[in-house]
Design a protein around this nucleic acid. Structure first.
Lengths: 208, 208, 208, 208
DNA sequence: TATGAATGAGTATTCATTCAT
DNA sequence: TATGAATGAATACTCATTCAT
């Protein structure tokens, strides 16, 4: 459960750790969590198997590290995109677009997150940080509802889940080559899709 | 790849096979495919380990059987719900509602399908029948676009992917206890969500 | 260890048993004892798996039956070929030739016997009847020694082992396609080989 | 097919590998290849089961290693015994004697090689190096024929097969306790047997 | 820090044999 | 006699993790 041994790492140490993280990222993304062996990761990273456990407590904890770091970046990116001076729907749209761009760029990580959901041992790790990432989205939806820009089809939480799910799903499709849209087109399409789905008047934001 | 040994099953045989399938369903759903041992399935079904291989070629082939059967039922259920005498958007709405109801009833199976996507060995099995199920949905969307009930935000395939993804996603949320909606409320909500998302005028169908 | 259940077989029963024996013969010879499954034998014989155990106690006992029957036939054939009115070396030669002919005709069985020698479970079965078959050979060698036709290079038992080994070995080579000799040439060659090896004057018997 | 993972072994590593090889040798020889479990080998060697696969790719590959090494040694031993300055028949005799001595000393290995011939999976391994070992024997036989020391009863290849077969057969008998000859007696006897069998004048070499 | 040898629990599948019908 | 469903012991191989150096 715990991520990694608390160690003061030298510069070389940080580098080594990153090598291992990078190797794991590539392999997890292409083969999945289960099918990726610790031995593979070490081989890919060019380090001995024993060293893995100097930097990480376990394969699972490495995975958790990866997920956490990715979610954090996603949240930052999304947050940065939502200009507080704009109206909530515009912010929702901007957040979705930024999320799509980020997810597509880091498609490998996110397909992982989505795919390993029923792995019993990973469930805690995976469900852990979801809410944090969702918080910003939910906030704009609540604001939009208060401002009367979104009807009360459902409570904000449900709409938030829908938005996040849609972003993730469409990015998966893109990753799997099931659409030929460019990233820009995709971002725009998904933003439109979610804005309409939550019940905001599409034209308002388009015209804005 | 192949499902199961070709055998003429007696009534008792069919029953036994079903026992094993049922046991597998329960366990796969709660633990995932990987974490479920053939031995567990047999214990749960109350049969000897060897008998598993009398009815199935492998753990994987049983899983494939399960998926195939579930997809078939889903398609039938959805198809039956779409009254051809109604307009496309109404049919879309009806299909989505039926899908939601069915998926929630069989949540265990579908969480599996969604979750095991990166398991290398299962990828072929899982991607195999996806398109078939999507066909009916895509058809109504195309019709709706031709009838001018849905704008050309995107091509029908992309919208179809979105609809299916939304249904599946919301059902997952329900299964995970992340919403307190009743099934009826959920079905209605998801139908509204998708109809709005594809760009249909929500009121038309609501008023119909 | 015991061969088969003592049963009074009907005509049909005897036929069925023979079907199974025939099937086993073919399969044992081509795949070896271990690699031949009881299920394979039954499939080849066209009977249900359960029936096997009506006619035989076990896979091993069937094998024992096969071996015994083959050895018996070999001994009869060899015995018939050794004309008691001729001198011992001539008889040896005749016996070897007959053995070679028989073994080559039934190469499949004998390669089995030779090959499964270290299979722990088969050792008793396989070593059981060897002496019986050797007895006739040993007798002529003893006679030949007494008659001064063979020097005392070694005791008769050792020479007998050598003769039998040679017959079996050369027949294996023939079976494996390692010689292009015809059966007649082979029989003649092996007879010459053994007669010389035991130390008999080759010319005597050739001229006889 | 391949023997073992390519690894640079430390001294300790070589030792460990040898421990496992030794254990396997003993067990294969007494129980046969099939009946010997990897777990048995490891227990006998006093190492954990997993370590087996650090040094060997599979049970089969270990067996192949064993066979190859033994054949190589046999050939060297035999070759060293055949003094090139002597006549071919003397060399044949010397080679046979050396082979017998070596085989009796390493009876365990060779009974294996002879016995596992029909094991489907081992056939390639077993037939692989047979010819190499035979080459030296065949050479002296050809020379002897050219020198007129051996009549043309048969082509050299057939005679070679016979010689090798005889050596192997008699050594089996010795191993099985079917003769009470000492190793020296056995070596001398088998040499005489083969030299006579190929048709060389026994006395020439005895007098030499 | 770094290595790689060592550990051992864990698992899908096979197959001779038994048994109810 | 005949069937084929049911049993369960047996086994090679994997891989996360630990440890001596």
């Amino acid at each position: 459960m715990e991520s990694s041994p608390e160690r003061r790492l030298t510069d070389q140490g940080r580098e080594r750790k990153q090598q291992i993280l990078d190797a794991a990222t590539v392999l997890f993304a292409s083969r999945g969590y289960q099918a990726t062996r610790v031995a593979d990761i070490c081989a890919e990273a060019g380090v001995a198997k024993g060293l893995f456990y100097w930097y990480f407590d376990s394969k699972e904890s490495l995975f958790a590290d990866l997920i956490r770091s990715m979610r954090l970046q996603l949240r930052r990116t999304q947050g940065a995109a939502m200009d507080p001076s704009t109206d909530p729907v515009t912010r929702l749209r901007a957040g979705v677009e930024a999320s799509v761009r980020f997810m597509v760029d880091h498609a490998a990580y996110f397909s992982l997150i989505e795919s390993e959901r029923t792995d019993e041992s990973l469930r805690p790790v995976l469900s852990e940080g979801g809410e944090i990432y969702a918080a910003d989205t939910q906030r704009v939806i609540v604001e939009a509802q208060r401002a009367g820009l979104i009807p009360d089809y459902a409570d904000a939480q449900m709409l938030t889940l829908g938005v996040i799910g849609a972003v993730s799903h469409f990015c998966q499709f893109h990753r799997n080559g099931r659409t030929t849209m460019s990233v820009d087109e995709l971002a725009n399409f998904v933003a439109g899709w979610t804005v309409r789905a939550v019940g905001a008047d599409d034209r308002i934001t388009l015209g804005g």
